[in-house]
Structures are given as structure tokens and as C-alpha cells.
Computed example of a mutant assay.
Amino acid sequence: MKVSIITSCFNREATIAHAIESVLAQDFPDIEYIVVDGDSRDRSLQVIERYSDRITRIISEPDSGMYEGINKGIRVATGDIVGLLHSDDFLYATDIISRIVKRFEETGADFVYGNGLFVDANDTNRVVRNWIGGSYSKWKVRHGWLPLHPTCYIRKTCMDRLGLYDESYRIAADSDLLFRYLYEADLKVEYLNEYIVRMRMGGLSTDSKRRKQMWEEDVRMYRSHGMPAVWTKLQKMAWKVPQFVNLGSL
């Protein structure tokens, strides 16, 4: 079973090496690693090219945003399973891809997700939010619950059939895709109760300056799927409360 991991990058010279190295350190032998750079204006591409002999494919060209870059990566991916690692993030442990693949093989899942940690951008050992994925049900999705996007690994055949990210969303394309896959489709979904990723606070969805845009896009997204948009968005926000309560257990 081959795993395609896609990293989309734009002006992330300070963090992209950490992301890349966390993939290259994995003990799973069959990883196709695709890095898509959106024509960065800093030294990101130079950093990426330092690893060119170990990255399966590097794409560097202008794009309209992160989700266009991710879609480019998915379209050229040849793995059985597709996962994402954002350029500010890094995989939690060197055996986590092996554990994900094992869950796919044991259960015949179409979609596997797990847990993640939001960490301080300057001190990645300091946990800011502890995201425990918890069990899956369509009822939970209908009431605003979604798994943490970078913990989700999905069979490529399902992505080809169900469609990729809607690039009209700048922030909520991940929520839209997850809602389509987890609520509107009938996939076999499995929860892996393991930490998969550490995410630096300060990405598109964690920047306070973008929260208004995130609200508007989430409302538009839920409305497009025939949901009570504002109410579902409020429920989505309520699901996040335990992430902060769970910090006491770390």
C-alpha cells in the first residue's frame, strides 16, 4: 500500500524544512512525497530543493491559494492513500504513517483520522490545544463536528470519485470536503486514537484576523449543503471547547 503525502507551501522558509524532515524520517517504506510551492517569494523553494533527491515530486508555479496547490498534488498522486501535511506542521512520530496504514489494512477503511496538537509557533513543545478526534457518526457531522483536517487520510479512489477541494473557498475548503465525504457520502470511516500531527498556531484558520472570513465561509458552506447554516456553525464552534479542557491531561 502506497501513501501519497502532499505539502503545499507559500513563503514558509522558516518551517518547511521541519515539515519535510518529519516525512522523510518515517519508517514506512512506500511514501510518495509531493511538495507544491506556490511560487514563493522567500527562500522556501531553495530549502525544498535541498531535499530534492528524497522528495518524489516538486511542483513550483503560481497558484490562487493553498487549495489549488493541494489539488495539483492530489491530481498527480499515485498512492492508494492520500494525506496532507501543511508547511507549518510536522508529523507527531516517525512510525505514525505505519500506524495509519495498519488501520486501513485491518479495517478496510476508506477514511482514517486521528488526534492532533496545536503548538506554540516559537516553542513547539508547548501545547496550546489538544484536539482529540473521538468517534465518528453522521449525527455528529450534521451537528457541526468535523475531524482535524491534517489528521485525515483518504483512499485516492474515493477522492477521484467524490471530487477535490472547492477552490472558491480560501479557508473553508477543507470543511466543505470533509462534510461532503463524511456526511453526504457513505464511506467506511475509522478513528485512530493516536496523535498524528503537531500544528503551529498561526495558520489561515488560527489567525485571529481571518476569523471573520472563516465564519462567513463556513456559513456559506453549510448553507450550500442545505443545513441551518448559522446554527450548524455555532455547534461546530462548541465542539472545540473540549480541546482546551483536555490540556489539563497533557
Score class of each variant (00 low, 15 high):
232 T>E: 06
57 R>V: 03
14 A>N: 15
220 R>G: 09
185 A>V: 09
15 T>N: 08
13 E>N: 07
6 I>N: 10
55 I>S: 02
176 D>A: 09
186 D>K: 11
185 A>C: 06
219 V>C: 04
133 G>V: 00
66 M>Q: 14
11 N>V: 13
176 D>M: 04
222 Y>D: 11
188 K>F: 03
145 W>H: 07
119 V>F: 06
126 R>A: 02
116 G>L: 00
163 G>A: 04
237 M>Y: 11
9 C>K: 12
180 R>S: 06
175 S>D: 13
105 E>I: 14
209 K>T: 08
167 E>D: 10
180 R>L: 11
64 S>R: 15
188 K>Q: 10
32 E>M: 10
174 D>W: 10
183 Y>K: 14
115 N>V: 02
76 V>H: 03
177 L>K: 08
52 S>R: 15
44 S>E: 10
97 I>A: 00
137 S>D: 07
140 K>R: 14
213 Q>K: 11
151 T>S: 00
19 A>D: 02
151 T>L: 00
193 N>H: 14
170 R>E: 06
156 K>Y: 09
190 E>L: 04
162 L>A: 15
37 D>G: 09
225 H>T: 11
84 L>Y: 01
222 Y>H: 11
23 V>E: 04
128 V>Y: 05
101 V>H: 01
196 I>W: 00
209 K>I: 07
128 V>K: 15
243 Q>P: 04
52 S>F: 08
145 W>S: 09
243 Q>E: 14
10 F>T: 08
27 D>C: 12
158 C>A: 14
114 G>T: 00
233 K>Y: 11
42 D>A: 02
154 I>S: 09
170 R>C: 03
186 D>E: 15
159 M>L: 15
